[in-house]
């Protein structure tokens, strides 16, 4: 809660600050808990339902705690035509989780994103902030282990 009020203290009590607030909450906590939405609502003068309606509109926002490492598989067109489906299947197999889930040990979360904009290097994978291009199913395991 302290973190949330810290974040709020840097933002105007204006609705246009809502999405920036949600971004910051998520970057600090990894997800957006209900208390944060309520606090943000009170801060910008909206109801919690409205905040919930806004937050759930955007696929970047998550409402469940995430793993220590975030794996993002691109499902953009270039990646798709270059076989991203197989990459995703391979990750799912390696981590034992499906798109949108977090592994039981809390190590990994897996999500797909619309397009990472590195299409020339498709298929592309992002682990935490690091982008991996020209991924093959065979490379998935080593990438997840943090190797190139």
């Amino acid at each position: 809660m302290q973190q949330i009020s810290d974040i709020l203290s840097f933002h105007r009590a204006d609705r246009s600050d809502l999405i920036p607030i949600l971004h910051e909450v998520q970057s600090r906590l990894g997800y957006i808990p209900p208390e944060a939405m309520q606090a943000a609502a009170d801060h910008v003068g909206m109801s919690a339902s409205e905040v919930y309606g806004v937050a759930t509109f955007y696929s970047a926002f998550k409402f469940k705690p995430v793993g220590r490492h975030c794996v993002k598989a691109c499902r953009g067109t270039a990646c798709h035509v270059k076989g991203s489906e197989k990459i995703l299947a391979e990750i799912e197999k390696a981590l034992g989780i499906k798109d949108g889930d977090t592994s039981a040990d809390g190590e990994y979360s897996l999500e797909t994103v619309a397009c990472l904009g590195s299409c020339a290097l498709a298929p592309v994978l992002v682990v935490d902030e690091r982008v991996y291009g020209r991924v093959t199913p065979a490379r998935v395991k080593s990438i997840l282990r943090g190797e190139r």
């Binding site: 409205e50 919930y52 309606g53 509109f57």
Partner: peptide, 10 residues
């Protein structure tokens, strides 16, 4: 202006 309900998700 109660805003108890809203559209959620997309």
């Amino acid at each position: 202006c109660v805003n108890a309900i809203d559209l959620v998700s997309r």
